[in-house]
Amino acid sequence: MTEILKPSVWIFIIFALLAVIPAFVVAFSKNIVHSVISLFLSLVSVAVLYGYLGADFVAVVQILIYVGGVVVLYLFGIMMTREIKLDVNISNAPIGLGWGILFGAVFFGLVWAAISKVNWPTARISGTPTTSPIGNAFLSKYLLPFEIVTVLLTVVLIGAVIIARKEIKK
């Protein structure tokens, strides 16, 4: 009972709730702009959880790419696919919500039952700053995947421009 009063535990609980509750708002909100704002909140909280686990570099990358890039891209996509005659309240109505909730509950129950059966290690391995080991691993052990991802990002950049062009040659 004394353990629950530690500040680190409270920080974890707060940001876990801030990650999970907006995720379900993303799933159930009728307004897609509310969904994007909730996604933003959830991604920031997941970044805080990365930092809580000692992954400082990944937390910063998450904030830079997801929060700074992906969420803004979603907002642009929503703005550009909005019909002019409608207001901001874009239709985000779900189909078959009852089946979705039923599937979600069954899925979560099964996965959690499986997780509960495993005897997980409890000791947390103490962390050191991770930026330098990550850089070394990228340039030695994971060099080929790293280069492939860079080529992929270049291809994606060109492909996105070509696909999203207005004038499509017939």
């Binding site: 999970v20 995720a23 379900f24 959880l49 239709s91 089946w99 979560f108 996965v111 959690w112």
Partner: peptide, 29 residues
Amino acid sequence: IGIKAFLLVSTLLLTAGLITVMTRKNAIG
């Protein structure tokens, strides 16, 4: 915090994502 708390968070995120993918009509959703 034990490993199970993080597993609970990630499983709930996965469930919310699956419900979103299954029930949304809007492609951006």
